[in-house]
Nucleic acid binder design. Structure first.
Lengths: 228, 228
DNA sequence: GTGCTACTGTCAGATTCTGGCAGTATCCGT
DNA sequence: ACGGATACTGCCAGAATCTGACAGTAGCAC
């Protein structure tokens, strides 16, 4: 196995262990000496991988992905850039910042002439969606990722308000509004909640009892049946 | 210089020369022997780089970009995926396909658990934009890239039709409509053309007399002055 | 302090990379 | 049909790099 392959392997191995792993354990798993492991870690860190080592504990990889060298066609890069620009204009601040960062990272490694092409790119995205949510969608995405219950006050189309506790599992981006898709404990059914009608968001540490992907699948099934 | 750096250098060098370059010339430019160059080319091709060699001519790189190994945070990948999904739902078929391809390429190199996360991703994009253009926006993008004049029939807001020859330099993606931004030869000024009002598109081989980026810059200046 | 671990320096041996050479195949213009 | 230019492959010895082992320092937890 070549060195560069091994470096990717190391990243993946680190990803599998969420708890800190000792260098010795990693070296054993990869079939290399501890000395070489230290060198590999240093190389990866040099390439920007967020690996942290603490004496007496071991190594942890902060969440993230390492993409190997990848070839994109002209139009594929245009599509990615256009898409990221669109995301960057969404009112979700955290996601928007992430999109901008991703673009910056890509631009940073491109040769000069390409970077100029990107900067002066000819694909433009319209003005930011007008609606501004009063809540932090970043918290919602976090709750989705961690499968945590979410509480909030919801004002429905008729104006009636109600307290909800829901199991959020998806976020929909439409023209004007963002929609939280969740299982509603009150209604005991799937419900959509427009983000601009949510207030008083309460994040919790309570894990909801089902897997996010199972909920998503079930919800999709209910969508397909009664073809609207 | 390490081998992996040199491989990226080779790609960039190939990009600079649009005409076929002989292996010897490339080897000289990189300061390596021709034998090593052949090995490097083989390695790159093995990694998916679209390099073509023809006996008696030399090497050409089909347009595209090679991204070096890159680290993305959780949210950055989510942003890229969401953005690409949005592009994939746009009515521009070529761009939409490119977005889907880019996503597939990224998914292909991700470890299994991450690919599942992506597939069952929790960020959804609304239904495809309703409006369907009668013209192929791919042709427009191509004209923009190559700085070619474009002819078409335009039906303005009042319903009046006119023949136009324009110098297109940007494409805007709004909620519902796509807009071609161009210098209009008839009006001798910058004009926006809604894609759904364009018909009878005529691509030409006639290069327009100004640089695309200069037009873009000038157009932006006219936008900023009279704050609407 | 003791035990565990991250990290660095050094050096010899293993591994890989590189350049040169010889040879084959393919395309092009004449 | 021919010569010239070039892509491409196999082989091998020397150069460069990588690797493992050992010795040593430093931080943290008990």
């Amino acid at each position: 196995m070549s060195r560069s392959e091994r470096l990717l392997d190391l990243i993946q191995t680190l990803r599998r262990h969420r708890r800190p792993v000792s260098g010795q354990a990693l070296a054993d798993e990869l079939g290399i000496s501890i000395r070489t492991l230290y060198r590999d870690i240093a190389t990866l860190q040099g390439q920007g991988a967020p690996i942290e080592g603490e004496a007496g504990l071991g190594y942890v990889l902060k969440p993230g992905f390492m993409l190997p060298p990848l070839m994109f066609s002209d139009e594929e890069i245009e599509a990615i850039v256009l898409g990221s620009r669109w995301v960057a204009k969404q009112p979700d601040q955290r996601l928007s910042a992430a999109a901008a960062n991703a673009l910056a990272k890509i631009a940073a490694v491109l040769p000069d002439d390409l970077r100029e092409d990107l900067d002066a790119s000819t694909l433009l995205v319209g003005p930011p969606a007008a609606a501004i949510e009063g809540i932090d969608l970043g918290l919602v995405r976090q709750a989705i990722r961690n499968e945590r219950k979410l509480g909030f006050l919801y004002r429905d189309a008729g104006g009636a308000a109600s307290e909800r506790v829901v199991w959020p599992f998806a976020l929909g981006f439409f023209d004007k509004v963002r929609v939280v898709v969740a299982w509603c404990e009150m209604r005991q059914d799937f419900r959509h909640f427009r983000a601009d009608r949510i207030s008083g968001l309460n994040t919790t540490d309570t894990r909801y009892p089902r897997r996010r992907q199972a909920l998503l699948k079930e919800w999709r099934a209910t969508l397909d049946k009664p073809r609207s």
